[in-house]
């Protein structure tokens, strides 16, 4: 009885006055269960994750003013800036988060005034090494897959990234406005579709199909490789950043505009930016953290992993996200929308 009372008391002591549920719209497998549990233990607030597996669906929610259903949404830095301009997101910088400074300057700049950096990474190719003797080291290997990978390859469907892959493969600037260059990228992408298993995010596919997955190659964001291995049970997956270079991305937490930011939300942002928590999560989920302080605590294995830290020479040929004009966004959207595996 004495212990029970003690337990009850301590529970009341720890719990805030209003325990809140933080609704987060995010990629699958981006926040570790351990981190969520610790957050709950420490603050009494709970985290409810709503998952998306492609940006198209997410962006539709953002534009359709349904974003208000969520407290936090994870958006890539390009769209963060783009939608911030439309006034869709609340200015989180006004919260003056004390742990915000642990993030690198670069990442903070990428996310702008309404975004809080969470993860960063590269875009590359994941493939099963046992399928084909052909060395995969170029975007062209993805666009014109070797025989063994045909019919079992997946391609990202994302206005910027999809077109960027084709432009990079052609040795062109992924943010070009040149119509001829874009046409050549479109033709490359169109010819690729016949070899594809599907368009979309490979993690979503393996989550659905598990060990019955037919996937052998895919365009992938760094940090998702472990998911492929875990869900398929296939340990021969490998991630590379193609020799033509890649795009760097930063994923930022944003909060929808026109809605007060809850205490629980603020608590979560502070919590996730604690260097220990940030590292724990990055290591659990195996992605590259934006937290400079967390990186300082990281193990050599983490630091030297190619997925986490690509080859320097490749990095030299790579691009950071840049804001495109409305016409360029629309045109890229038209191009990507036309792509279909004609299933």
């Amino acid at each position: 009885m004495k212990y029970m009372l003690l337990a009850l008391f301590s529970a009341i002591l720890v719990a805030p006055l209003y325990a809140q549920e933080v609704k987060i719209y995010i990629w699958d497998h981006y926040i570790s269960d351990q981190v969520v549990r610790i957050f709950n233990e420490r603050t009494g607030h709970t985290v409810k994750q709503y998952l998306y597996d492609d940006e198209v669906a997410r962006d539709a929610i953002l534009v359709n003013e349904q974003a208000g259903k969520y407290d936090l949404i994870l958006v890539d830095n390009a769209n963060t800036v783009s939608y911030t301009k439309l006034g869709l997101f609340a200015p989180l910088s006004a919260l003056s988060l004390k742990n915000m400074d642990h993030n690198s300057k670069k990442s903070r700049a990428s996310c702008g005034g309404s975004g809080v950096p969470f993860a960063k990474g590269t875009m590359g190719i994941a493939y099963r090494t046992s399928i084909s003797p052909k060395k995969i080291d170029s975007w062209n290997d993805l666009l014109q897959p070797p025989q063994e990978h045909r019919g079992s390859t997946m391609m990202l469907k994302n206005d910027i990234d999809t077109v960027a892959i084709a432009l990079l493969a052609r040795g062109l600037n992924p943010f070009t406005s040149d119509k001829q260059e874009l046409k050549s990228a479109y033709s490359l992408l169109s010819s690729q579709s016949q070899y594809l298993l599907a368009y979309g995010h490979p993690v979503a596919y393996v989550t659905e199909h598990g060990s019955r997955s037919k996937l052998t190659m895919a365009a992938l964001y760094a940090g998702d490789l472990q998911n492929l291995k875990d869900f398929t049970g296939q340990q021969d997956w490998q991630y590379i950043v193609p020799k033509e270079g890649t795009l760097f991305f930063v994923d930022c937490f944003v909060a929808p505009a026109g809605k007060p930011v809850l205490q629980g939300t603020k608590a979560f942002l502070e919590f996730i930016n604690e260097p220990e928590i940030a590292y724990m999560n990055a290591q659990d989920m195996w992605f590259s953290t934006t937290s400079q302080s967390a990186l300082e605590k990281a193990s050599a294995e983490y630091k030297n992993d190619t997925e986490i830290s690509p080859d320097k020479s490749v990095l030299l040929r790579s691009y950071h996200y840049r804001l495109l004009s409305r016409e360029q966004v629309v045109l890229r959207n038209r191009i990507v929308s036309m792509l279909s595996t004609r299933e």
Binding site: A60, N64, Y83
Partner: peptide, 18 residues
């Protein structure tokens, strides 16, 4: 200002194969 997302979302109604 007519931002890109407004246009692209309507575009998807016509051409998005999904």
């Amino acid at each position: 200002e007519m931002a890109a997302p407004y246009i692209t979302q309507l575009l998807k109604r016509f051409v998005d194969k999904q």
